[in-house]
Simulated scan of single mutants.
Amino acid sequence: MENKKADRRIHRTKRLIRDALSVLMEEKSFEEITVKDITEKADINRGTFYLHYQDKYDLLEQSEDEIIKEIQKLGMESINFIESWIVSAFETPLPFIVNVFEYFKKNAVFLKPILGPKGTGSFPIKFKSVLSANLMRIRKTIKGDTLVPEEYLISYIVGAHISVLQQWLESGMKETPDEMALILSRLTGMGPAFAAGLITK
């Protein structure tokens, strides 16, 4: 029981530190932020900070890696994207994409600045790698050839996903995760030309 309480305290403290970094990154670039800034914003002493992190770079890396691991747990390995697009792209959002948007909304305090102009650029690279690897696994299970080189197809899809997520966060998340998942499902499943009304069924 004591160990569980200690674990909860550690989790709360680390979340407090991460949230402090997130707020500061809304105000200035990561390079301008100091450990003193973070501890003052989190209302903790420097000793508490150094119990968990070597420096601000270690804080950022651990925070990003935790987010990436949690995103990987959302089930991206199991969903059959192609089948789902055919069945539900127009009316029902893909469950996995809904989960991603819900996760981003829940963790927007950290994800908005880390994906924004004041971020270091490291998280989008990690996120892109996760999405790309997942699409590559899915592609291997599908028969037939792509109409364009595979690496460009995957780069296009992944880039579009990240860009839409960034836009949603920056614009204040007015749409629900379900609405955004449906928008992205239609864009990905049917293509931007169809979504723009340039072509019809």
Rank of each mutant, 00 (worst) to 15 (best):
G75Y: 05
G75F: 02
M76R: 05
M76V: 11
M76G: 14
M76W: 12
E77I: 00
S78N: 14
I79V: 13
N80W: 01
N80L: 06
N80R: 14
N80V: 05
N80S: 15
F81D: 01
E83A: 06
E83R: 09
W85P: 03
W85K: 00
W85C: 06
I86G: 09
V87S: 13
V87E: 13
V87R: 15
S88L: 02
S88D: 09
A89P: 00
A89E: 05
A89V: 00
A89S: 14
F90K: 12
F90G: 12
E91K: 15
T92I: 09
T92L: 05
T92G: 02
P93K: 02
P93G: 04
P93Q: 07
P93M: 01
L94T: 01
L94D: 00
P95L: 03
P95H: 01
F96L: 08
F96K: 00
I97T: 00
I97C: 00
I97A: 01
V98K: 03
V98W: 00
V98A: 04
N99G: 15
N99Q: 15
V100P: 04
F101K: 11
F101I: 07
F101E: 00
F101A: 06
F101Y: 14
E102Y: 02
Y103K: 09
Y103E: 04
F104Q: 11
F104D: 08
K105A: 12
K106T: 15
K106Q: 13
K106Y: 14
K106A: 15
N107R: 15
N107M: 06
N107L: 10
V109D: 12
V109Q: 10
F110A: 03
F110R: 02
L111G: 10
L111H: 09
L111V: 05
L111S: 04
K112V: 05
K112T: 07
K112Y: 09
P113V: 04
P113K: 03
P113A: 00
L115W: 03
L115D: 11
G116I: 05
P117H: 04
P117M: 09
G119C: 05
T120Q: 07
G121P: 00
G121Y: 05
S122Q: 13
S122D: 08
F123C: 03
P124K: 04
I125K: 12
K126I: 03
K126P: 11
K126N: 03
F127C: 03
F127I: 11
K128N: 13
S129T: 13
S129K: 15
V130R: 08
V130F: 07
V130D: 01
V130T: 05
V130L: 13
L131A: 11
L131F: 15
S132T: 15
S132H: 11
S132F: 04
A133Q: 12
A133N: 15
N134S: 13
N134K: 13
N134W: 12
L135E: 04
M136H: 08
R137E: 11
R139V: 06
R139Y: 04
R139S: 12
R139I: 01
K140L: 05
K140V: 03
T141P: 03
T141I: 12
T141L: 08
I142P: 01
K143V: 14
K143N: 11
G144E: 04
G144M: 10
G144D: 06
D145L: 06
D145C: 02
T146H: 02
L147D: 06
L147P: 01
V148T: 10
P149C: 02
P149K: 09
P149D: 08
E150Q: 09
E150K: 07
Y152K: 12
Y152V: 14
I154Q: 08
